[in-house]
């Protein structure tokens, strides 16, 4: 029994050294060497292209309505996560109604991504049709011709990887950066 206890303890420590320290540290070293941008969060001056931001006002394209896009700086990062409202939730009905009314007031015919929250609460992307739906709003607020905005969206559209993996999407931060350059 004492031999087994000793073996159990030794194997736990060996595993800690190899899989808890050597593996992640070697991985970190390699990641920082080969892919420093990605390994550090794809972060530029305007934020991370992988982490959604709240865009308010009609001058910008909006992302998913992750209402409490949680990474507010109050000294400590908030937590990611979904709203977790069920498919027959009264709360979800009323929250969604509010969003639909909001978009109608902006002159936008809402699409489902624009009135539903994401799985992470941080979704950085929308589909091209979500962006196209917002053209009337952005165009009248910025004075940029709808045709020009349509071209902009097309240029920013990322086609499915390998031609078939996942839907085509637009990164909202990149789209708005391109929009800012246009002004």
């Amino acid at each position: 029994m004492t031999t087994e206890l000793r073996r159990g303890f030794v194997l736990c420590l060996v595993a800690l050294a190899i899989f808890g320290l050597a593996y992640p540290l070697a991985g970190t070293g390699l990641a920082q060497l080969l892919f420093p941008t990605q390994a550090n969060g794809s972060i530029g001056k305007y934020g991370s292209t992988l982490i959604g931001q709240q865009w308010s006002g009609p001058k910008w394209f909006h992302g998913r309505p992750d209402s409490d896009n949680p990474l507010k700086a109050n000294g400590r990062p908030g937590t990611s996560g979904a709203a977790n409202l069920g498919p027959r939730s009264k709360v979800l009905v009323s929250e969604t109604s509010k969003l639909i009314r909001y978009w109608r007031r902006q002159g936008v015919t809402p699409t489902s991504d624009l009135v539903t929250t994401s799985g992470s609460g941080l979704d950085p992307d929308i589909t091209p049709s979500d962006a196209i739906a917002q053209i009337p709003m952005v165009s009248s607020a910025t004075g940029i011709a709808p045709q020009r905005l349509r071209q902009l969206i097309r240029a920013q559209t990322v086609e499915p990887e390998l031609g078939f993996l996942g839907p085509a999407y637009v990164d909202v931060l990149k789209l708005n950066l391109a929009l800012a350059r246009l002004r």
């Binding site: 498919p87 969604t96 979704d123 589909t127 979500d130 839907p167």
Partner: peptide, 24 residues
């Protein structure tokens, strides 16, 4: 479609139930 989203007024959900899902 997500039934709650449909009940809120968006019956046309061509991409399916996107509540709690990621666009990518």
């Amino acid at each position: 479609p997500n039934p709650a989203v449909a009940a809120a007024g968006l019956t046309r959900q061509p991409t399916g139930n996107m509540e709690g899902k990621e666009v990518r």
